[in-house]
């Protein structure tokens, strides 16, 4: 859906999405890194289970909710990637304790 422009010379940052290594760039938000990856990163909603991807990328729509380093329902569009970050795509309601 999106690809990186060749002029992007930022250093790579490796994150893991549901265990799979994904090459992100320093300064990417989690949501941007997910959308730039080739993976199916659709979450499903807590209400009906409908699939969603980020919509606004500016912190207002909450369609980018994602589990980051074990903590559920983070706004992926507001969190920068860090080396080794573990990202999980959420399916349905968040589990308690996550």
């Amino acid at each position: 859906m999106f690809r990186r422009s060749e002029q992007d010379k930022r250093p790579q940052v490796q994150i893991f999405v549901d265990g799979a290594a994904v090459a992100a760039r320093q300064g990417d938000t989690v949501s941007a890194a997910l959308l730039a990856s080739s993976y199916d990163v659709r979450r499903s909603t807590a209400v009906s289970g409908a699939p969603r991807l980020p919509y606004c990328m500016m912190g207002v729509c909450f369609d980018c909710l994602v589990t980051i380093d074990g903590v559920g329902n983070r706004q992926g569009c507001l969190v920068p990637v860090t080396e080794g970050m573990q990202v999980e795509i959420q399916k349905g309601k968040r589990e308690i304790g996550k």
Binding site: A46, V47, N73, G92, K93, R94, E95, I96
Partner: peptide, 13 residues
């Protein structure tokens, strides 16, 4: 007056 706090949806616990 009473205040109430509500969380996001979570799996039944």
């Amino acid at each position: 007056r009473g205040q109430v706090v509500v969380t996001e949806r979570t799996m039944p616990f």
